[in-house]
Simulated scan of single mutants.
Amino acid sequence: MATLYRNRVEAGQQLATTLTAYAQRQDTLILALPRGGVPVAYEVSKVLHVPLDIFIVRKLGVPGREELAMGAIATGDVRVLNAEVIRMLQIPGHVIEAVTAREQRELERREQLYRDGRPSVEVRHHNIILIDDGLATGATMRAAIRALRLQKPTSIIVAVPVAAPATCSELSTEADEIICANTPDPFFGVGWWYEDFSQTSDEDVHDLLARANHEQPSAALKP
């Protein structure tokens, strides 16, 4: 079975072709989900000439099976739990709380590291294009959408290069618009569709954000 993309750079370049309606719009911002969503979103930002920032979300992985999400947290004290996974694996409440506390610390660390002292952007009254490198369960993206709603954007557009068909369909009820460039079935997993799905480092995220801030400075910075 052939992959869809060589790497996240190519994925971002192709995803940008589905978002041309938002090119050079001053009422639009791109928010990437670190870490893997940042190189994808950076390429979209370059093509559309739209400012790029990040929105930190952390998956709550099942202990011992961390790739399986039992939920996610996002900036703004938002937590979304996957009730089906929790019920199926009979995960006790104290385990959920312990994982949440650990991931909250990591979320705060990344906020400080990635922004490098730059303030976050003003989401209110903007169209937000929310980008990740793919959607599997959708828990992380769902948490991001719900956290962003609290900041009253004009609209939330979810855009990803590849997604599980069912997840893409489910998230269409949460976002104002959803663009899943490819929805292969069977899905297998996000990494299956990339030739190079190597981990994006903290340094990569920091450098891409600094570069984007220089190339597309945002007029929507919070005071």
Rank of each mutant, 00 (worst) to 15 (best):
Y22H: 09
A23C: 05
A23V: 03
A23T: 01
A23D: 00
A23M: 04
Q24H: 14
D27F: 04
D27V: 01
D27T: 03
D27W: 00
T28N: 01
L29Q: 11
I30W: 01
A32L: 07
A32F: 02
A32S: 10
A32D: 05
L33F: 03
P34I: 02
P34S: 08
R35S: 07
R35P: 04
G36F: 01
G36S: 03
G36Y: 03
G37K: 03
G37Y: 02
G37I: 01
V38W: 01
V38F: 05
V38Y: 04
P39A: 11
V40N: 06
V40D: 05
V40A: 10
V40W: 05
A41F: 06
A41M: 06
Y42G: 07
Y42R: 13
E43H: 14
E43C: 11
E43V: 09
V44E: 05
S45E: 09
S45D: 07
S45G: 12
K46F: 04
K46R: 15
K46W: 04
V47E: 13
V47H: 12
L48S: 03
L48W: 01
H49R: 15
H49P: 00
V50E: 07
P51F: 12
P51S: 13
P51G: 13
L52M: 11
L52W: 09
D53M: 08
I54A: 10
I54M: 10
I54W: 08
F55E: 06
F55Y: 09
F55C: 00
I56E: 11
I56P: 00
V57I: 14
V57C: 13
R58M: 09
R58N: 04
K59S: 09
L60G: 07
G61V: 07
G61S: 10
G61H: 10
V62D: 09
V62L: 15
V62G: 10
V62E: 11
P63N: 14
G64K: 14
R65A: 15
R65M: 15
E66A: 15
E67A: 15
E67I: 08
E67G: 14
L68G: 10
L68C: 12
L68D: 11
L68S: 09
A69R: 06
A69F: 04
A69L: 08
M70E: 13
M70K: 13
M70F: 14
M70L: 15
G71D: 11
G71N: 11
G71T: 10
A72T: 12
A72M: 11
I73F: 06
I73P: 05
I73M: 06
I73L: 12
I73K: 06
